[in-house]
Simulated assay, not measured.
Amino acid sequence: MPQIRPVSDLRNHFAEISRIVHENNEPVFLTKNGYGDMVVMSIEQYENIQQNQEIIMKLKEAEHEADTSKERYSHSEVFNNLRMQIRNKSDQ
């Protein structure tokens, strides 16, 4: 269940809010005058959201490229290419 707190709790109960976002791994929604104002979350939660958005963006790019290109690669071609890239990076 989401935690919804008044924004004044950020000042008056910071330690409790910090504990909630870290222990429950969920954001705390802060209100001002009864309306949503801010969301507080841990850095780990934020980084996870950013990483998921990047993955979604890359998948959309891949879908677009697949829709606009006739070029296709076999499973072995893809993995051989990846192995070569990994070897090249480890040699540097």
Rank of each mutant, 00 (worst) to 15 (best):
A66M: 08
I17Q: 02
D67T: 12
E54R: 13
E26S: 15
E77Y: 07
K89S: 09
G36Y: 15
F14R: 02
I86K: 08
F29P: 08
E23Y: 00
E77M: 08
E47N: 01
N25F: 05
V21W: 04
N48V: 01
E26H: 14
D91A: 13
Q53C: 03
M41P: 00
Q45K: 09
H64C: 09
P6D: 01
D37N: 10
A66E: 06
M84Y: 14
F29I: 10
R5C: 02
S8K: 06
K70N: 13
P6M: 04
D67V: 02
E65F: 15
M57P: 00
N24W: 01
T31Y: 04
H64M: 14
S76T: 14
E63L: 13
V28W: 02
S42F: 05
E65H: 15
E71C: 12
R72C: 04
N81H: 10
D67A: 14
I86W: 11
H13R: 05
T68H: 15
L30K: 01
L82Y: 13
K70G: 14
N80R: 10
K58N: 11
R11Q: 11
S8F: 01
S74G: 08
G36W: 13
N25Y: 07
K32Y: 03
K70L: 10
M84H: 13
I17L: 13
H75R: 13
D37M: 01
N12F: 10
E44D: 05
G36Q: 06
N88L: 08
K89W: 05
E26W: 06
I56H: 11
S8T: 11
Q3D: 07
M84E: 15
I17V: 13
Q53E: 11
R87G: 14
D9Y: 08
R11K: 13
D9K: 04
V21A: 03
F29C: 07
Q45D: 13
